[in-house]
């Protein structure tokens, strides 16, 4: 800003601009405007490009989801045939099969059934991104108590309890059916992985975090799990406990995590073998512009 030095005539007394200065200024101005215009054009161009990338990404993601949905649907068809022919074998070839043959066919049917469940879960998972509901402010106390009512009566039937300590009770902008499904899935796990001979005690709590979000805790007094496997339990079809004792496809927590992430939140858990488990879900109060 020391241009005054180039212009010794521009003193205080003689302060009006010389022709030369005005001309120079006009030239500079033309250069500046041209540069600004180019910059604007470049910016518009890269914006358009970015938009196109985002759209392409959205489309290919959508295609993948659609594919998953159709694939899991189409795979059911041959499985149904296998079940039908297994039944036919059993009824028409009863004599020839004998008890051992019968048992093999039953095992076959069992395996097919598991496969069907896996496919069901897979399609439910891919439907998640397709079937969304508009986000609207929802009273979390109500959303949660509606969603867990069924599990609560099961827990009580087993001599245990499910307590809601949603205090304070936040109103959050959420896809309520999905968030309800997530809580249901968490308490269902709490109930399923209970200790033998110990009545299941489940508690859901809420609290406001320091950075203005909401944390929900779902705690149980069940068998727990070793925390070093924490990463695995949120992955599709991952299960830590033997399927003979505890049934399930291993998709529950995968779905939970997906729902939470779609709300811009986070889910994690704390546990140790034999000491119950606690799942932590952090959700923002308001949703930033929709994500897919």
């Amino acid at each position: 800003m020391t241009q005054g030095a180039d212009n010794p005539h521009c003193g205080v007394e003689e302060k009006s601009l010389t022709k030369k200065q005005v001309l120079k200024y006009a030239e500079d101005l033309a250069v500046l405007f041209r540069a600004e215009k180019n910059q604007r054009l470049r910016l518009e161009e890269s914006n358009a490009q970015l938009k196109k990338y985002a759209e392409d990404l959205r489309l290919s993601h959508q295609e993948l989801q659609d594919f998953l949905l159709t694939a899991s649907h189409d795979l059911q068809e041959p499985l149904r045939k296998a079940v039908t022919f297994g039944d036919l074998l059993k009824t028409r070839f009863r004599q020839q099969l004998g008890p051992a043959g019968f048992e093999y066919i039953d095992r076959l049917a069992g395996a097919v059934q598991r496969m069907q469940r896996l496919l069901d879960d897979l399609s439910a998972y891919s439907r998640l991104t397709i079937e969304t509901h508009p986000r609207a402010p929802a009273n979390m106390g109500e959303v949660i108590s509606d969603a867990v009512a069924g599990v609560k009566s099961q827990a009580e039937a087993l001599g245990g309890s499910l307590k809601l300590e949603i205090q304070p009770n936040p109103v959050l902008e959420v896809d309520a059916p999905q968030i309800g499904q997530m809580f249901k899935c968490l308490v269902a796990n709490g109930l399923k992985f209970r200790k033998r001979g110990v009545p299941p005690e489940l508690v859901i709590r809420s609290r406001r975090t320091d950075d203005g979000k909401w944390e929900f805790t779902v705690r149980d007094n069940g068998i727990g799990f070793e925390e070093k496997y924490l990463d695995r339990i949120f992955k599709p079809f991952e299960r830590l406990h033997p399927s003979g004792e505890y049934d399930g496809a291993g998709m529950g927590l995968t779905v939970c995590r997906k729902i939470v992430e779609r709300h811009g939140g986070e889910i994690t858990a704390k546990s140790s073998a034999g000491n119950g488990a606690a799942f932590f879900v952090v959700l923002p109060e308001k949703q930033s512009p929709p994500r897919s």
């Binding site: 800003m1 020391t2 241009q3 005054g4 521009c10 200065q21 120079k24 200024y25 500079d28 101005l29």
Partner: peptide, 11 residues
């Protein structure tokens, strides 16, 4: 701000 100045500096 010192006179004279360039348009860029002014902006």
């Amino acid at each position: 701000f010192l006179k004279p100045f360039s348009p860029r500096e002014l902006k």
